[in-house]
Design a protein around this nucleic acid. Structure first.
Length: 448
DNA sequence: GACAGTATGAAGCAGGGG
DNA sequence: CCCCTGCTTCATACTGTC
């Protein structure tokens, strides 16, 4: 309590309003360091500024968006913050189109080589890799970037790598030269599921699926499609085709029989996302859809991580935050990188069970240490494990997207949201690891 | 309590017509 | 330039069944 009161007092002395200080402490926890709290308040004020347009927003927003459009037209990702016409700093971040990242494993896009320079304090070990949804609310990615050494995100749509869309941003300090050209998964829906070809209507021109989400289509949708087609001409009128295709796109339906457009099964989603088939088999159907919908596209992440293979020939020590069903570990394993030790933090018991199952199935010989909540992973505990394991080679994770994702009708509240604010714990934990490793380095030098 | 099923828009961008 | 249409989106809350 004394600690808490002191923090409140000094934050207020710094000029922050009391209610915002309270909110920051509620969000980040009493144990959060001062700089985490300060950043949280800044993020909050940032969002409040933008939200205050609400109600009488039109002109201002329209004006801004027009200006941005001008400023950003034709820009590529990864360059410097821009300035508005009036000279003020622009802190929105425009998504690149097409969303190809710094490079792709197939050369179809003929991307020019990207030259990026990392700030000195962000270079080298520990490497870190942070992930979240690309289409978050305005200014979200600016805040994330500012809190991770100002490194610009690499935005990639996984449909450039596999048969399903997944638009994500990745902030990392990995080298981007000499990524490995791994064997790619099937590139289209029907290459992935050739047995559906016999039922696929000619007027359904989809080659890629949309983003895989956490729930499957209700039977009312598939029944409506079946009924509509049965009582329709063959082929159906253009208007009927459009309506049905809209539903197919919205729910990622595939043609599994005559007039039957069905949701994907969990095993098919596992395949699309690059997991071993039946990776999630031991849990309920509802949980499988949810866990898979929340996970990495493994081929995409593996492509980025592939530069680590030659750097760590004897394996890696990994701090895995928001582990989920272990997308990062599956990617490293597929690259043939030995997991010497993994400290994993994952709140969901279901996900921990799936991950432990994979760990056993693949006969991992390394050490696995599990925690259930980033909020209870104190700085002391991080220091203890960092020292004990000789430092971490990689800090990896995607913090909750619940309050950022477009599908959320109820609480799309940005980085201040109940779950998505855990991003600030990723930042906190990364900072502690870096600081402890720097100290270890000095101690090592001093002992010689 | 576990599990399955169903209803529930908005935000933001891209593009085109006038 | 304005205004409109189209498209996509790691979800939540509630109900019912067993």
């Amino acid at each position: 309590m004394v600690d808490k009161d002191e923090k409140i007092k000094s934050l207020q002395e710094m000029g922050f309003p009391g209610d915002e200080v309270d909110r920051a402490i509620n969000i980040c926890g009493v144990d959060a360091s001062m700089d985490v709290l300060i950043d949280s308040i800044h993020a909050s004020q940032h969002e409040a500024t933008n939200m205050s347009f609400g109600g009488r927003k039109e002109e201002k927003i329209m004006e801004e968006s027009k200006n941005k459009r001008k400023l950003y037209r034709g820009r590529v990702q990864g360059n410097q913050p821009r300035r508005r016409l009036d000279g003020s700093q622009e802190n929105s971040m425009r998504l690149p189109n097409p969303m190809t990242g710094f490079s792709l494993p197939n050369d179809r896009h003929r991307l020019p080589p990207v030259n990026r320079s990392l700030p000195e304090e962000a270079k080298g070990r520990p490497f870190f890799y942070y992930e979240n949804v690309a289409k978050a609310l305005k200014d979200t990615w600016s805040t994330i970037s500012e809190n991770l050494h100002g490194i610009k995100p690499e935005f990639v749509d996984s449909q450039n790598i596999c048969a399903t869309a997944r638009k994500r941003g990745y902030v990392h300090n990995l080298p981007i030269e000499n990524r490995l050209r791994l064997p790619l998964p099937p590139q289209t829906i029907l290459e992935t599921f050739p047995h559906y070809k016999q039922w696929w209507p000619k007027w359904d021109d989809r080659r890629k699926l949309n983003c895989l989400q956490t729930v499957k289509a209700p039977a009312t949708v598939t029944e409506w499609i079946q009924h509509t087609l049965a009582s329709s001409t063959s082929p159906p009128t253009a208007s009927v085709q459009t309506q049905i295709l809209n539903e197919c796109r919205k729910w990622n339906l595939v043609w599994t029989g005559k007039n039957i457009a069905a949701p994907l099964e969990p095993a098919e989603i596992e395949q699309l996302l690059g997991f071993p088939i039946n990776h999630t088999r031991e849990v309920s159907m509802t949980d499988r859809y949810k866990s898979l919908g929340n996970s990495f596209q493994v081929d995409t992440v593996a492509y980025h991580l592939s530069v680590l293979k030659t750097m760590f020939p004897n394996g890696m020590t990994v701090l895995s935050l928001f582990t989920g069903i272990g997308g990062a570990e599956v990617a490293l394993h597929r690259l043939g990188i030995r997991l010497k030790a993994v400290v994993s933090v994952e709140k969901s018991e279901v996900n921990r069970r799936i991950f432990r199952g994979w760990w056993g199935q693949t006969d991992q010989q390394g050490t696995l240490i599990e925690f259930d909540d980033v909020q209870s992973l104190s700085n002391d505990l991080i220091e203890y494990h960092t020292r004990r394991l000789g430092g971490f080679d990689l800090v990896i994770g995607g913090s909750p997207c619940n309050n950022l994702a477009g599908s959320n009708r109820h609480h799309r509240s940005g980085l201040q949201g109940k779950e998505s604010c855990l991003f600030f714990h990723y930042r906190r934990i990364l900072r502690v690891v870096k600081s402890v490793m720097a100290t270890m380095c000095e101690e090592g030098a001093a002992s010689y």
